[in-house]
Design a protein around this nucleic acid. Structure first.
Length: 464
RNA sequence: GCCGGGGUAACAUAGAGGCCAUGUGGCGGACUGCAGAUCCGCAGACGGGAGUUCAAAUCUCCCUCCCGGCCCCA
């Protein structure tokens, strides 16, 4: 079995062969830090978290880099509104980014370069673009990338230049040689954050930071470049051009793009409903539920969020949690002889097969559910051995290295002892058929967020 | 206008020529003082129309609807 990846460049799935055996370089476009991240950002972040986790599970030594765009019009505008320094504003949102992605159980990337800290590499790159005849500076201190020498502009989008909309003819810098030329360095307007450069004070253009950061952090050619599919054009297209103008070679071998999150029948409404902050969602839902929702569909397809989406995700996920917790209890009292090897092997193979097929997490999760059903059955009839339960937990844990959707460990401790005591008292009351009291204990515990469940001879409890 | 991604049972998603889809929800049963969990079973589907084929949700063509990209955006 080999990993196959859908490559936007070719429009189809290809076998994944890394540049250097056993190593993968993965660059994912990050966010512009002028506000909190929303569920759409979370989708991209969680998807590529899953990708890098799976690559690691396959044994690759993964170098995962994600950038922060901290120099940008929107940041400057927002900072002006608030009367703070732009870099101070972006630093604040970078902190928040980490708080939220940590909460989402996203593994930290290996590096998070910022535009503001990559000026040397950016300026060097702009110079090289000019030296190689792909760029020109204007009197005003702007530097544009000239598409005149580019033969296949639009290759990532499979579009021809002529077909693209001409809506941009407005508000053009008259010094541009072609309307499609794009800025790699922008002269600073009075009062803007700016850096010294050979062309005067200014700041980087829209796309140059990624090209420069990739080059300085990961080299001229990387394995996988990822991002949302809204970045394909022009951002990634232009990244490619810039890098090729400098290195003479390709930028990335595989381009992966996640689909957009859609909100049901909500247009551009300014109402809060249109902007689902991860921080808000995390108040109502646990990280696992959000991750499950985001991973329970193929990463390339669209994902529609509606009112009950997360509740449904939660219900589904509880099924898995239940099996997981049952297994923990079962292994201590297991009496059966079956080591569950057959279902475990089947699940392992299916998981692998689906993940190898362009990271089809949805299908892999289906396999997980099938496994859960078989394990539940074996526990219900007591046929599973302790070793089987142990192996099942291990396998589920293995899947969870990629998804991170199972419960946090460590319910236990003192709480365990106290709840256990209450459960014992209740059992005794039930034996004496004093159901009013036994129900009271159960109800009050439920109010406190703990659910008791009667099993044949014992009682289980869990947080709800 | 051009380029993509979609339209699968009540809902959410897989699947990409024949073989058991998965979950939520619903119904019936087992278990049960009740509730919950779990198990067993049931119902229910491939946007529309042509075509290819012994066989199409899956291939071809046409139509239609939704979403995204073409200034910024994960």
């Amino acid at each position: 079995m080999t990993l196959r990846i859908h490559n936007t460049l070719t429009g189809g799935k290809q076998e994944f062969v890394p540049l250097r055996e056993g190593e993968v370089s993965l660059y994912v476009c990050g966010v512009t830090v002028y506000d909190d991240i929303h569920l759409g950002h979370a989708r991209s972040i969680v998807v590529f978290d899953m990708v890098s986790r799976y690559l690691r599970q396959l044994g690759y030594d993964v170098t995962h880099v994600t950038n922060f765009t901290d120099v940008d019009d929107k940041i400057i505008n927002r900072a002006n509104e608030e009367g703070v320094d732009p870099l101070e504003l972006s630093a604040r949102y970078i902190d928040r980014y980490f708080e939220e992605t940590d909460s989402l159980k996203v593994r930290r990337a290996d590096a998070y370069p910022k535009a503001s800290e990559s000026m040397e590499a950016i300026i060097e790159m702009v110079e090289a673009i000019i030296d190689n005849g792909y760029g020109y500076a204007t009197d005003e201190g702007n530097v544009y990338f000239s598409i005149a020498k580019v033969e296949d502009y639009g290759r990532l989008t499979n579009q021809r230049l002529e077909d693209m909309s001409g809506a941009r003819e407005v508000m053009q810098d008259p010094q541009k040689r072609d309307p499609k030329d794009f800025a790699v360095w922008k002269a600073a307007k009075p009062g803007e954050v700016a850096w010294d450069s050979p062309w005067g004070r200014g700041r980087p253009g829209w796309h140059i930071e990624c090209s420069a950061m990739i080059r300085s952090h990961m080299g001229d050619l990387i394995d996988i470049h990822g991002g949302g599919n809204d970045l394909i054009f022009p951002h990634h297209e232009n990244e490619i051009l810039q890098t090729e103008a400098v290195t003479g070679g390709t930028l990335a071998r595989y381009w992966m793009h996640n689909g957009m999150l859609q909100l049901q029948d909500e247009k551009m409404s300014k109402s809060l409903g249109n902007f689902l902050r991860v921080s808000d969602l995390l108040r109502e839902h646990d990280a696992q539920t959000l991750r499950f929702f985001l991973l329970n569909t193929h990463y390339r397809g669209p994902l529609v969020y509606t009112e009950g989406s997360l509740e449904e995700a939660r219900s589904s996920l509880r099924r898995l949690w239940n099996t997981w917790r049952e297994l923990q209890a079962y292994r201590r009292s297991a009496a059966g002889a079956d080591d569950a090897a057959a279902p475990l092997e089947r699940a392992r193979a299916e998981f692998r097969q689906h993940m190898d097929d362009d990271f089809n997490s949805r299908a892999a999760i289906s396999a997980l559910f099938e496994l859960a059903r078989e394990l539940n059955r074996m526990m219900a009839d007591g046929s599973m051995s302790a070793a089987g339960a142990e192996a099942a937990l291990e396998l589920m844990g293995e899947f969870d290295e990629v998804f991170a959707i199972l419960p946090d460990e460590g319910d236990g401790g003192e709480l365990d002892a106290v709840v256990g005591l209450l459960a014992d008292v209740r059992q005794e009351l039930r034996r004496r058929r004093m159901f009013d009291l036994s129900d009271m204990i159960r109800d009050r515990l439920k109010e406190a967020g703990i659910q008791l469940e009667d099993q044949g001879e014992g009682v289980k409890w869990k947080r709800i």
